[in-house]
Design a protein around this nucleic acid. Structure first.
Lengths: 139, 139
DNA sequence: TGTCAAAAGAGAATCATTCTCTTTTATAAA
DNA sequence: TTTATAAAAGAGAATGATTCTCTTTTGACA
């Protein structure tokens, strides 16, 4: 993704365009395996050695608030982030920390119809995400 | 749940039966809203004032390993626990930290059949959990 | 009842994340 | 283009949940 394109995205979200924010956005988009803050910082420092950890956390928070990234729920005490492209599900390895995206429009429709028809009492569904736990057969 | 019953469960899992473990098990079973370690500790200390936090964490880890409790994935940096009764889904409030269980056998069957038929390439599904995000209409 | 590995206890250590305070900078108006 | 200013970045301390270390206690079995 080109810098100008990222700038436009930030601007459209009402975020001040700064080199740090561009770098974070680029890192999250590039590191596609749901990176931790740590790996994002490590990646950025290759080209921007002095960026502060606090800055990266603050930028990630701002992005999360604006819906540019999502926090990924995990069972560990380290947060992981996800460049939001569209709503999707996650495959979790039951043995390692690996997490992969899973897109399935057919499934989304089935679920959407199911809950539209059946509903959940006293609850208004806004979004459904599957955590599919299992084993990856290839690396 | 009676103490003897808990003892039996622990014994069957190959865990040494201690008063602390019984207390933790009882707390997790009793506190049904996916308690944090903190609230588990607080609950236990009402009847067992001197239990060490380290002990509670160690017990929760042991239980997690044996499948007696589950860690609940959240976007916050505080772990939450869940007494494992049977596989179930979670309703997450999009505005607060509230999490409720959601059981739906019909849905489980739909999903089971769907993935059995369709499969996911290079992935062996072991368990499917839904995170249903939305709003609770009643407290 | 004695033995001993496992568990509990206490408090320090860890470490991801957040906060505080200062300096810098992007933005928009003059 | 310069200026004003609120927002953002930076540095390092603070926080706080969780883990670790080391010692003492205890459950389980001989």
């Amino acid at each position: 993704m080109k810098t100008e394109e990222i700038s436009r995205v930030l601007f459209e979200k009402g975020l001040k365009v700064t080199p740090q924010r561009i770098a974070v956005y680029e890192a999250v988009a590039r590191l596609n395996n749901h990176p931790t803050a740590e790996s994002i910082i490590k990646y950025i420092r290759k080209t921007y050695p002095n960026i502060s950890t606090a800055t990266v956390y603050k930028v990630l928070d701002a992005f999360t608030e604006k819906g540019l990234v999502n926090r990924v729920k995990t069972e560990k005490d380290m947060m992981r982030y996800d460049a939001v492209l569209e709503s999707h599900h996650h495959l979790y390895c039951s043995e390692t920390d690996r997490i992969e995206d899973y897109h399935d429009e057919q499934l989304d429709n089935i679920l959407k119809n199911y809950f539209e028809e059946k509903g959940i009492s006293d609850f208004k569904v806004e979004d459904i995400k599957l955590q599919i736990v299992g084993k990856f057969l290839k690396s």
